[in-house]
Amino acid sequence: MTTDFGVVPDLTPEQEHESGAPALEAASERRAARRGFLVALPSFAYLVIFFAIPLVIVLVYSFATRNPRGITELRDWNVEAYRALAEPLLRSVLVRTLVLALLTTVICLALSYPFAYYMATRDSEVVRTLLLIGVMIPFWSNFLVRTYVIRVLLSSSGPLSEASQSIGLGEVDIAFSNAAVLIGLVYGFLPFMILPLYAALERIDWNLVEAARDLYASGWKAFRRVVWPLSRPGVVAGCILVFVPSFGAYVTSDILGGAKNPLFGNYIVNQFLQARDWPAGAAVSVVILAVMLIGTLVYFRTGGRTL
């Protein structure tokens, strides 16, 4: 029996008396199903119109033709836009995007795991909550501003450069470089790794570790055989939540990388707002979408249920 509310009042006592129970249950379940659909209908319709259909249109556009005046024409369907991905110019952007997104993910994981472990192993609930709030604040703070902050910090003769000069390390000049973009991406997406890792580590039954230690497992072995496997759903979720937005990053590379170091995101924006080659931009968007879908599938395949 489902727990749908409002199932029972449909039936007056007389009806209940007359009909057999199984038929009754089937009928009320059908009614509940119809009501569920009706409750979902406004949002369902909204998301179909303003999300699913736009997605299909982008897919269609990626096979369309751009005429010399920069207007997209929905005829002469072709895969030119995808073929361009293999050409040197776009390939170098693809490689840079891929490498930076992977590096961001690895660095975030390396920084976050010990951090989340430290948070999850605090005895006091109050301390754990405070530590968590310390991560929630950057997580929900304005992303543009958090990127700008790094831009100010790294500006030539800016605070970081001055600090390093004063301790005798010389000038730091990494503004508008791949390194600056990498720092910005790590700074921006680090909370996306910490939060799922913390959620996974916090759920671990530490008695299991205790048991492993009692059975003479070394600290390292207890970690490798008990803690790490149990925290893996958090690792996978964190990696996807960092890799997917890094792969589609635009604001970070635009502010910190300058025009010389474009990522896929900058390439897309450029195709749409300046070069007016919409099929080319749409094709790269489809590639990013594919990466997102693969990431989600990996997540659900490895046993994750909710993001």
Binding site: R34, F51, Y250, V251, I268
Partner: peptide, 28 residues
């Protein structure tokens, strides 16, 4: 609170805006 046909499709559709990169949604 309800079980209905199409529930899983709706669930998936509802998740997508959360994980899609901004640039892709902007293009769409």
């Amino acid at each position: 609170r309800f079980r209905w046909r199409g529930r899983r499709v709706f669930d998936a559709l509802l998740y997508m805006p959360l994980i899609i990169p901004d640039v892709t949604m902007a293009v769409m």
